[in-house]
Each structure stands twice: as structure tokens, then as C-alpha cells.
Design a protein around this nucleic acid. Structure first.
Length: 576
RNA sequence: GCCAAUUUAGCUCAGUUGGUAGAGCAUAUCACUCGUAAUGAUAAGGUCAUCGGUUCGAUUCCGAUAAUUGGCUCCA
């Protein structure tokens, strides 16, 4: 059992780093140096522009401080004293941070060698107890996270209880690097982006498109089977639509500029909702036809700031697996429970087992009647309870237009991704004056819920690639098996096998290149092909093939019915 | 958008302290017919991201632009 918790070690390492930076650059002004989920950082302001080589120097200095085993000394001082010390040292950021400390709270400084810092603590006892640390990167960061403020230089580092744990962490990072969907996307020929087309706009290659086509088909079938209907809506809409929805007031910066047609402004859609609402409003609606569950794989375009784009995970043109549920207050509870259940089923089919819901409730500034909010939140809570998952609650974390549940899923190497979202909207039904005729013959305002299971198709695909490390399960794989005759003598039989498997509906290829078996195996491995069917003289004679599975290794000789049954089982059961 | 770094062949990368470039893989051709992670030979392939400046001369130095990467911010 470690003597100090990880947070304490990391925070102490941040101080250690700050002490080293002070030793090297005398004019440095300090901001804050907290621990994070993966390590720690410290923000500095100084004339010198840090370079990667500086990190080595700083690490070196940190090590000498560690070797000196200097104590972390805690000092309680008065506010006046603290102000005096910080003023004398010219630590302007720290002075502002000091002003944030509430009146009456004890003010503490921690001293490590010559470095003395306003800090709540706690820390390890001495610098010798920080045994495993590494500086990772330099980044810019706005003071207090506000882009109007000056940009400080941030150094990221990490620290662990011991060297072994740190080693494991870096191994995980290595693994993540190997799985990077941008790297695999190129290697496996799945997708690309082009300068000519524009940043954040994805080109889906045939293999990536096949995977997408396959899971979209699954998605459509699943939706029809779960009581949804499909709709299609246009990519552009007149400005009046976006004025009514409020997007032009609140969201204009993220929308592509309008195009003028017949003296009217048309905008490319950043969201599908207004179109779905217009379908709803195309005629008078009765309570008898509710709930309506309308889904669409709707492609939207948002002008994301250039610096935020990241592979498939953050793009400018993407397809939402959108759906809107329009229902009566009485239906809300069961509808929400059903959406949540449906989401979990979908995630399980893709091989994600670790799922965690996050509930966000009413913020201070919100639209909609409080009773509606209450009913909505109650239904969300109840749905989570029924499903039996532990839920984290972010009080006041909802959007101004409604509360929501987000789902976070854990991938194969333990990273969390925010994906599904189930959001109430009390704003758009008002703005568009959506109504239905109730049992009482009068007009009522329906409840509307936005919901995306996969989030964006692009982002979901990126996550899938990383989750499977490029080796798609058989039901999604663009190529399920490759037949490899050893020499030209087996060619006829190999072709026969190829045609037979093809006829049975499998996605197979025939590698009849004039290459060695070794070379063929190597290439198939690199392309993440699940089944390699090697055919030599022996197999021709027996009417079989030597099966090598990516996951299970050598499986020995099998005839065509056996391998077909095996693959069919894996496909039908979505084995991952 | 902001801070920083990067951009050389289809890919992964060397390289030139300023005299227009090189490897491996991939590709093509030929030979080889092979038993579970690379058979060999030959050939082809580059306005060194783009535009401008300095210079006798720029891929190299300087500036701008674009894209990418790591962060910040943003993600009604």
C-alpha cells in the first residue's frame, strides 16, 4: 500500500517541477499546478519560450532536487503576510488566486527548497518520495481558461507511485498509439481527408464505407424493430427556419455562411431537429398517434474552430444517428426507459460492456416550465434506476433547453468515450409552437426528446477502429476470409473454394500471387483478416483447407461446410 | 481562433553548415512454385506543402499562407 495517494504524489511532482523551473528561469511567474487524471501540469508565464529540449533540462534539475530529499514544509500565514510575500516576488497570478481564497480560510504556503508556493496541499514529506515521474509536453493555455486572457506556457507531466506502474501507463499509451484510428485508417485504407476538399471533411474509402454501410444497416433494422420510423430531410434550409429555431441567434458562429438563391438565404444544416419538427407540423396531430419516434442518419455541417479538429473524432461534416421522440407527458417515463434500454442493447452488440450514464439537471438559466423539468428529470432518474446502472449526477449541468442523460462507454483498453445522449428539449416545441389535440379536444404542447445513440457516425467509426484495433469482428469486416493456395497446382481447387464461399454470402478473396505462404500470411495479418485458408497439395487431396484464425491461431484442416458454419455462427452472434 | 511543433517519393523516414536529393516498404516487369509473419533481380517514382523575399544560386535562411500534430478554448 502506497504511503501517499496518487493525487498527492502528482501534485507534489508539480511543485517539484515548478521548483526546477524557478531554478532555471528566474523571471518565471507561477499560476497553478494541479494533478489531473493522467498526471499533472503547471502553468508558467516567462520571457523564455520553452522547447522540448528544455523539458530534459527541467527533468534533470528535478532529479537533483529529488536526490537532495528536500522537505515539503507547510506554513500557515496570515493573509497580509501572504500578500506581502507574493507582491515582493511579483507573483501577480498568485495574488489573484490568493484573492479567491475565501475570507476566514487558513492560508497555507508550501516550501520546497527555494520554491515557496501558495497551496492548500497536501504533499509528500520530502522530494525523495517522488520516485517515478516524467515530463510529457509543452502546451499553451489561457489564464483561467478564458481566451480573452493572456496565454501561459503549460508543461504536462505525469507521476506514479512507483516505476512499474508508470511503465504500465506508458505501455498503455503505446497501445493507444498503435490503435490510433488515423494511423489505422491509412494503413487499412478506410478513409482519408484531403486539403483540396477541406479540413474536417471525411472521404470514406470502399473498405471504410463497407463497415459503415454494414453498421448503418444494422442500425436501421434495429430502429424499425424497436418502434422507430425513418425519415429523410434536406441538407439546406431557408433562413426563416433557423430564425425560428433560434440557431441564427445563438449558434451562428458555428454555421457555414449562407448561400443566396432567388434572393433568399439558405443555410447548410447544423442540426436535423427543425426539419423533423416541420414534418410534425405538416398536419394537425392527435394524442392518438403519439408517441412518434422519427429517426434519420442526418448529415450536418458545423464550422468547428480549426484547432479543434481531430481525425474522425472531431470533424466539420458528420452524420448524426439522430432521432426525435415526440410524446405526451404520460408517455415520457416509459419512452425514456425504452431509449436507455435500446442504447445499451446497441452498445453490447458492438462489444462494449462497460457503460456509465451521466445525468445533467436544470441549470440556473433555463427555459421551460419547472414542472416539466421536474417530470423530465424524474423520468430520467427512474430509467437509470430500472436499468440498474450506477449514475453520476451533474446538478445544474444540463443545457438551458432541457435535462439529459449521456452515456460514456469504456473501450478495450479502458478509455472512456462520451457517445449516446438523450436530451429533453423545452425550447424548440415552444419556438415552433408544436401542439397535439388531446383527449379533451384541446391543444397541448408535446414533450420532445432528442436522442443519438452512436453520436456521430464518423466519431463512432473512429472509436470502433480503436476499440477493435482495426480487426473488425466478422459481421463488420470488409474481408472475412482469404484463400491462399501455396502453389499454382492448387489454383483450381482454391478457385472452387472461393466461388463456393462467395455463393454462400461470405466476403472472401483469393491470394493467388506468386508469393510465398509466409508473405501471404504476413500481408493478411497486416490487413487484419480474421480467417486465412491455406490450401496445399494435402488439402486438395482431402478436399479441405488449413484454417488459421487471427484470434485463435492454427485450427487444423476443415472442410468447406465446417468453416462456413464457424463463420456463420460468429457473424450471427456478432462475436467480437 | 490562440500557444507551440511539423510538412522531403503512394507510405514510413534519412539528408544537404545554401550548389535542385536518398533508403526501406508499396508499385511495374521478369524469374521463382514455395506449408503458416517478408524469394530474388531490374525499372519507374520527387517543382523537397504553397506563394513571396534575401542571394550569382533556396529544398536548406527570412516572411506570409495552408494543412497536420500536441494542448487551450469551444462542443446552444
Amino acid at each position: 500500500m502506497a504511503k501517499f495517494d496518487l493525487e498527492t504524489i502528482r501534485h507534489s511532482a508539480a511543485h517539484l517541477m515548478a521548483a526546477a523551473v524557478q531554478e532555471l528561469y528566474q523571471d518565471v511567474k507561477f499560476d497553478i499546478g494541479p494533478s489531473t487524471d493522467d498526471g499533472f501540469y503547471y502553468d508558467f508565464d516567462m520571457a523564455h519560450r520553452l522547447t522540448p529540449e528544455d523539458l530534459e533540462k527541467i527533468e534533470e534539475t528535478m532529479r537533483t532536487i529529488v536526490n537532495k530529499r528536500l522537505p515539503f514544509e507547510r506554513m500557515e500565514i496570515s493573509r497580509e503576510e501572504a500578500t506581502a510575500i507574493l507582491t515582493e516576488k511579483g507573483q501577480t497570478y498568485k495574488l489573484e488566486r490568493l484573492a479567491d481564497v475565501p475570507e476566514g480560510q487558513t492560508i497555507t504556503f508550501y516550501k520546497l527548497g527555494d520554491f515557496c508556493d501558495l497551496c492548500r496541499g497536501p504533499h509528500v514529506e520530502n522530494s525523495g518520495q517522488i520516485t517515478a515521474f516524467k515530463l510529457l509536453s509543452i502546451a499553451g493555455s489561457y489564464y483561467r481558461g478564458d481566451e480573452k486572457n493572456p496565454m501561459l506556457q503549460r508543461i504536462y507531466g505525469t507521476a506514479f507511485e512507483d516505476k512499474k506502474t508508470m511503465h504500465d501507463y506508458f505501455q498503455m499509451l503505446e497501445e493507444a498509439k498503435k490503435r490510433d484510428h488515423r494511423k489505422l485508417g491509412k494503413e487499412l485504407d478506410l478513409f482519408s481527408m484531403s486539403d483540396m476538399v477541406g479540413p474536417g471533411l471525411v472521404l470514406w474509402h470502399p473498405k471504410g464505407s463497407f463497415v459503415r454501410y454494414t453498421f448503418e444497416s444494422y442500425w436501421r433494422d434495429a430502429h424499425y424493430n424497436n418502434g422507430y420510423e425513418m425519415i429523410f430531410t434536406p441538407h439546406i434550409g431557408r433562413s426563416t427556419l433557423w430564425e425560428t429555431s433560434g440557431h441564427l441567434d445563438f449558434y451562428k458562429d458555428s454555421m457555414y455562411s449562407p448561400m443566396e438563391v432567388d434572393e433568399q438565404d439558405y443555410y447548410v444544416k447544423p442540426m436535423n431537429c427543425p426539419f423533423h419538427i416541420e414534418i410534425y407540423k405538416s398536419r394537425l396531430r392527435s394524442y392518438r398517434e403519439l408517441p412518434l419516434r422519427w429517426s434519420e442518419l442526418g448529415t450536418v455541417y458545423r464550422y468547428e474552430k480549426s484547432g479543434t479538429l481531430h481525425g474522425l473524432l472531431r470533424v466539420r461534416g458528420f452524420t448524426q444517428d439522430d432521432a426525435h421522440i415526440i410524446c405526451t407527458p404520460e408517455q415520457i417515463e416509459s419512452e425514456i426507459a425504452e431509449v436507455l434500454r435500446f442504447s445499451l442493447q446497441v452498445w453490447k452488440d458492438f462489444g462494449f460492456k462497460d457503460i456509465k450514464p451521466y445525468l445533467s439537471t436544470r441549470p440556473a438559466k433555463a427555459v421551460g416550465e419547472p414542472e416539466r423539468w421536474e417530470l423530465a428529470i424524474k423520468s430520467l432518474r427512474k430509467a437509470v434506476d430500472e436499468i440498474g446502472l450506477e449514475c453520476e449526477v451533474d446538478e445544474g449541468g444540463g443545457a438551458f433547453y432541457g435535462p439529459k442523460i449521456d452515456l460514456k462507454i469504456k473501450d478495450a483498453i479502458g478509455r472512456e468515450w462520451q457517445t449516446s445522449t438523450i436530451q429533453f428539449d423545452f425550447n424548440l416545441p415552444e419556438r415552433f409552437d408544436m401542439t397535439y389535440i388531446g383527449e379533451d379536444g384541446r391543444k397541448h404542447r408535446p414533450f420532445m426528446v432528442h436522442r443519438a445513440l452512436l453520436g456521430s457516425i464518423e466519431r463512432f467509426f473512429g472509436i470502433l477502429v480503436e476499440h477493435y484495433a482495426g480487426a473488425f469482428p466478422l459481421w463488420l469486416a470488409p474481408e472475412q476470409a482469404r484463400i491462399m493456395p501455396i502453389t499454382d497446382r492448387q489454383r483450381d481447387f482454391a478457385e472452387q473454394v472461393y466461388n463456393d464461399l462467395k455463393k454462400r454470402g461470405f466476403r472472401v478473396s483469393l491470394d493467388d500471387r506468386s508469393e510465398s505462404v509466409n508473405a501471404k500470411i504476413k500481408d493478411a495479418r497486416n490487413e487484419r483478416i480474421q480467417y486465412m485458408l491455406v490450401i496445399g497439395d494435402r488439402e486438395v487431396e482431402n478436399g479441405t483447407m488449413a484454417v488459421r484464425s487471427r484470434r485463435e491461431g492454427q485450427l487444423g484442416e476443415m472442410n468447406i461446410d465446417q468453416i462456413a458454419d464457424k463463420m456463420r455462427f460468429e457473424i450471427d452472434n456478432k462475436v467480437c
